[in-house]
Computed example of a mutant assay.
Amino acid sequence: MKNRNLRLEFPLHMMLIPGVLLVFVYCYIPMAGIVIAFQQFVPVKGIFGSEWTGLDNFRYVLDMPDIGQIVWNTFYISIMKIAAGLIVPVTVALMLNEVARTFIKRGIQTLIYLPHFLSWIILSGILIDILSPSQGIVNQALKGLGFDPIFFLGSNNWFPYVLVSSDVWKEFGFSTIVFLAAITGINPTLYEAARMDGAGHMRQAWHITLPGIVPIIVLLATMSLGNVLNAGFEQVYNLYSPSVYESGDILDTLIYRIGIMEAQFGVATTIGLAKSFVSFILISLSYYLAYRLVNYRIF
């Protein structure tokens, strides 16, 4: 029996080989570059010829005047994105579930799903035009209502919320589909029993639909812990400017500026290594919580 299962599963294991090779080549082999965090790395000399500095790069990072604010920005923006990225899709999924006409529901799903396929290069250009303090449609509307225009992308008070709201706008359609799929797994007899007891749509949604998708909500929330230090480099890089570094600068943009623009490869690798170490702990914690709370297992 064991040999028979092995023969049946062998083609499936062979299909994994290309994926495993890609992960090994692009994820594991580059880990040798971690040693750059302990060197005064010079590209011409290479890893073996660069001067070994021990923990000097780590001390340099800890002494950076803005490192505390940047770490706080990363956590703050990420946590807001995770929270909004759960609340909005769940709410929209509950509302779409009440739409009776299939073509209307599918049309709405298509419209809210489209931004997911657009890159942040395109969306950033759209946002810059929409939020322009002089010609943007948002500020034109504010002027029409008698309010002063707001420089959304140049104000430290507004910039983090622009990041969160635009991220939700781009991704909530994709997450909504996940929750709608979870709703289809709820036993329809529960709704029939609720209707017989006189429960309306709101009570059915609150007492049947929402509790029915709580496991997937908990699973996605716990799995999101591993992304707490990933506040969205591509989005922030295309929208921020020096005027909003105080509220919008995150670890990934700091690594880019130090490593690519200033050529301090050792310092940039040090920050990346620390970020990866903390992310590894958070990912491990998220898988443990997912197993304990909803019995989710990778294997």
Rank of each mutant, 00 (worst) to 15 (best):
V294Q: 07
T253D: 10
A32E: 05
Y60V: 06
E192K: 03
Y291K: 15
P160F: 07
A141K: 01
A182L: 09
G232E: 08
G259K: 03
G19Q: 01
Y26M: 13
D249Y: 14
V244M: 04
M223S: 02
L62C: 13
G226P: 06
L118F: 14
L86F: 06
Q69K: 14
E234R: 04
A182P: 14
F233L: 11
I29D: 04
L21T: 11
L16K: 05
A84C: 10
I112R: 02
I177D: 05
F24N: 00
F159P: 03
A290I: 02
Y237F: 15
R257P: 11
T270I: 04
N238E: 08
F147V: 04
E246N: 13
V164Y: 06
A93Y: 02
Q69R: 15
F179P: 02
L142F: 12
R59D: 05
L229E: 07
G232C: 07
T209Q: 10
I150M: 06
I271W: 01
N3S: 14
I112W: 02
V61T: 00
L16G: 12
M15S: 13
G49W: 00
S276D: 04
S134K: 06
K2S: 14
Y240W: 12
S224L: 11
L145Q: 06
I79Q: 07
I281Y: 07
I298K: 10
L210E: 10
F117C: 02
Y240K: 13
S132K: 08
E171K: 13
P188E: 14
L96I: 00
I36A: 12
A231Q: 10
S247P: 09
T253V: 11
N139L: 03
F179N: 01
S165P: 09
H116N: 12
A290C: 07
L153G: 07
V44P: 00
V228D: 03
W158I: 13
P160S: 00
M202P: 00
T91R: 01
L225F: 11
I112F: 02
L8N: 10
K143M: 14
S78T: 06
G107S: 07
S247N: 09
G146I: 07
P65V: 05
N3E: 10
L86I: 15
V25T: 09
G266L: 03
E98D: 03
G266R: 02
S166K: 12
I122M: 04
L239K: 02
V99E: 02
L6D: 04
S279Q: 08
D129A: 14
F233T: 01
Q40F: 00
L22F: 15
L86P: 11
L12Q: 12
D167V: 00
N187K: 12
M80D: 03
I36T: 14
A181R: 04
L62K: 03
T184V: 15
L210V: 05
A182K: 12
M95I: 12
I216V: 15
N57M: 03
V178H: 00
G259S: 03
M80Y: 07
Y245G: 03
L22A: 15
G248D: 02
D148P: 01
I47L: 13
K143E: 13
L180F: 04
T189R: 01
